[in-house]
Write a protein that binds this DNA or RNA. Structure first.
Lengths: 339, 339
DNA sequence: CTGTTAGCGCTTTCAC
DNA sequence: GTGAAAGCGCTAACAG
């Protein structure tokens, strides 16, 4: 292992000069800077992370914690996790992965031992164990997702409220007056995941405001047939669907509707909302207001790095506005019953 | 921040006694051990990771590197990544996540700065850039997957050869004499992923040995219809299929066969092989010889930790035997053409 | 069984 | 513009 001592000797300068020449934290004459750099190169020198961390009192590492329940969409979570790691690198941080049962305990451990400088929390529940921890920890935490009590926390998320409102209004503008929400299954809700609740609440509220006939369906199977049957039983003359459910429900929606003699968008219009597309498959053929890691994670990291490096105060809640992707799955409403 | 000094003072012992009492690395009288532990508890003491790492010359951190191409199955990769992290914790290691373009460069950086003690490489290509690095690095690397040149490397993977052989032999035992392999798409092969090559090679070889009529299909679309059409064109009287393709192809195989009037297992028997199930959906209804992270990752971590802690020599290649999961998708062959 | 002490390799005052 | 030196907080000889 070559150390800063070796480089200092090779370059004929002191170790502090090497340190400063390499970090650029104070002005060094062009000449010695070059000498130091060449010496470092020659000796293949790289500063030892642990030594640097001990002296500088920060590690250039953040942690990402994701509990990952059995029912969480692993593809979406991988997308978020990777995006966090990729964005962290842009700020020169590495990313420690704290998963499953270690998501909470690991968060505590990493903070207590000062293993990491900050934390990004993914997969946030309404009543998330990590919120309590975050409030008492000495290192900053940014939540990607909204717990129900956000006081004293820094959070970033898609503006689900607005996404739902935009979706409903779009359907209304096309003449639809009977709209169903195909939401997540009840296990997810029971577990305390917050965003489905927010979506359902926003949906009910907007439908009430606009006097739209509506129903919220929680599929009982990974196949959309059950959801479609439930919906058409509850609301037989549905002409608009807002889809905010698991990937498998979404993928089987078209065949399930076809089985009832309904085609999209001729008989029924569909808008997907608050859902993360799977990059390895082609997107579902529906207009969409996606929950996109590319929108939220960069913001989360800017915030976190700011919190770490400028010791700002936590407490920001940033709701990212949704983006509308048109895939021609919305058409003017027709009254199927008069045909 | 409370330090080991504070604890030593509080407990009325020296700092080395605190260190040893807490690490258990030498015998300490029951009495003082208790005093130290209580003092640590009272002061809420946790050893600073960077200081420990600098003094002890290891960090208790490993890295997992996964390039993650646009076509990689994110769900499967998340499963592997998480399993590595979970297993690492069992050995008391934390896991650093090196993804995408940083998978290679990050690996170099993490090793050079001694940020991590060892590395697990996922998503291994036939001619993987990381193999060269691994051979010259001072910290151990374990590959989960097989590159084409494994000399000097430590690797763990499913025994794809045997999986394919078992699948073929099972079909043969049921009387099938015409078998198709629905493999991965050509992009994946072109990119250099190794396991599809291994699978196709094993398939061809075993079919030749057993004088079975066979065909290898690389689907050109994420839907199985194309693959089924290709297969039935090439090999019209196929009665057995070995499925080793993307999740979307697998999920649409049943409808695609149905569209040709074929049902499983009545008309055609199907065995899935070398494929990672998605935990958030129910498994495909086919007999399967899965590529299961639970089988390979624990072995990889045992190996890696052994390499780190007992400075053993690299060079082990461990092929995990496949497990057969019966879902009744194999039935005795019938000659469709005589019906 | 316990204490003393010399580092681990770097950053960062403080002094020139 | 550069150097000397004091730590950062811990581990692990070495000594008793």
């Amino acid at each position: 292992m070559t150390t800063i001592q070796d480089v200092a000797r090779e370059a004929g300068v002191s170790i502090s000069t090497v340190s400063y020449a390499l970090s650029g934290k104070r002005t060094i004459s062009e000449n010695t800077r070059k000498r130091v750099e060449e010496a470092a190169q020659r000796l293949n020198y790289f500063p030892r992370a642990a030594a640097r961390a001990l002296a500088a009192r920060h590690n250039e590492i953040i942690a990402v914690t994701t509990p990952v329940h059995s029912d969480t969409d692993r593809s979406a979570h991988m997308a978020f996790t990777m995006k966090v790691a990729t964005e962290a690198r842009k700020h020169n941080y590495d990313t420690l992965l704290l998963v499953q049962d270690d998501a909470v305990e690991g968060m505590r451990r990493a903070a207590e031992t000062a293993l990491v400088d900050g934390i990004v929390a993914l997969d946030v529940d309404a009543d998330d164990e990590r919120t309590g921890l975050a409030r008492t920890m000495k290192i900053p935490v940014v939540f990607v997702g909204l717990p129900s009590d956000t006081s004293g926390l820094t959070c970033v998320d898609l503006d689900f409220d607005q996404a739902i409102r935009v979706a409903i209004d779009r359907l209304i503008a096309a003449g639809h007056r009977t709209i169903g929400l195909i939401s997540h299954n009840e296990e997810l809700l029971k577990r305390g995941a917050n965003f489905p609740l927010r979506i359902e609440h926003a949906f009910r509220q907007r439908c009430a405001e606009t006097h739209i006939a509506s129903a919220v369906i929680n599929p009982r199977s990974p196949d959309a047939h059950d959801a479609v049957n439930q919906l058409l039983t509850t609301l037989p003359n549905t002409t608009g669907i807002i889809l905010s459910s698991s990937h498998s429900v979404g993928a089987s929606l078209l065949p399930a509707l076809a089985a009832r003699g309904l085609s999209v968008p001729h008989d029924i219009s569909v808008i997907e909302a608050g859902t993360t597309p799977d990059a390895s498959t082609s997107p579902l053929p529906f207009d969409s207001l996606p929950l996109d890691p590319n929108q939220t994670c960069p913001v989360a990291l800017d915030l976190l790095v700011d919190l770490i490096e400028h010791q700002r105060k936590p407490g920001d809640i940033i709701l990212v506005p949704p983006r509308y992707e048109d895939r021609h799955s919305v058409a003017p409403a027709t009254d199927r019953h008069t045909i």
